[in-house]
């Protein structure tokens, strides 16, 4: 008969010797794709949806400006009006030029023209704050702007 036992001389355990290699491979994958979050959000940002999106390619050429209402735990200190957050602190529009300059010195000079400002703005915020920020960006000659948005499925 064909149904004869074939095992017997091989040990039944699966070799785990390659397990570290597999895990390391996964590890490297995650290390490469990881973007460490550099700033803790203090404002609520829920970006709106849109369809005509472009991807921001190089993270080092992007600076982020967050606009939204302060989170609940900051209400007593900062109120509920929409605020601007630069880096990890609440800022006023006047702080933008310095913020841009601080980012600029980290970028090689020949790439200064490619710096993009990513505006991560909550969809519920009114345009007043956004307009002030835009005006300040224009005054600081930072004209490349990306309105952060989520992909809308349609």
């Amino acid at each position: 008969m064909a149904f004869t036992k074939k095992r017997g001389n091989t040990s039944p355990e699966v070799s785990t010797a390659s397990l570290p290699d597999i895990i390391f491979m996964l590890l490297f994958f995650f290390m490469v794709v990881t973007v460490l979050r550099d700033a803790e959000l203090k404002v609520k940002v829920n970006t709106p949806q849109a369809t005509e999106l472009t991807k921001l390619e190089e993270k080092s050429l992007v600076n982020y400006l967050y606009i939204g209402r302060p989170l609940e735990r900051y209400h007593s200190l900062y109120g509920t009006k929409p605020r601007l957050q630069l880096g990890d602190k609440f800022s006023s529009v006047k702080d933008i030029p310095l913020f841009l300059e601080k980012h600029k010195i980290k970028v090689p000079e020949n790439r200064h023209g490619q710096i993009t400002s990513s505006l991560r703005v909550d969809g519920e915020v009114t345009m007043g704050v956004v307009q002030d920020v835009k005006t300040e960006l224009r005054k600081s000659n930072q004209l490349k702007v990306n309105y952060s948005a989520k992909k809308r499925a349609d």
Partner: peptide, 10 residues
């Protein structure tokens, strides 16, 4: 990081 890229006027 996706969004609508805009060129602001000077």
């Amino acid at each position: 990081d996706k969004g609508i890229t805009v060129k602001l006027p000077p």
